[in-house]
Amino acid sequence: MPPNLSKTTPSEILSLCKKFFYIGLLFLPWLWVVNVIYMWPLTKHSDIGKEIKKYLYYSMAGALFWLIALSTWYGIFVNQRITWGEFADKIIVIPIRGT
């Protein structure tokens, strides 16, 4: 459920949306996803809607970038782990049994 406009002022909501986006820059892509889901209903708001939409698009792009980057890394790692040998074992936190 989006922030209740009857309780919070639009400027506060906008600054919250901005904060979500900027904090998300600290390698927190889930925060961007939360931002998008949480704030999306307010994009229709006549006053701050446009501005919010801009930040939500930024957040979306950021989250998408992380998704692509991480899944690419996952693919590469899973397929190349054996070839990398010792290096791969060193960067693994919990050793993988049996393979």
């Binding site: 054996i82 040998g85 010792e86 074992d89 050793p95 049994r97 049996g98 393979t99």
Partner: peptide, 17 residues
């Protein structure tokens, strides 16, 4: 019967499996 070791002896010795 899950066996921890895989690939070859140098690998599993390094991984301590």
């Amino acid at each position: 019967s899950l066996m921890f070791a895989a690939i070859d002896a140098p690998t599993c010795l390094r991984r301590n499996f």
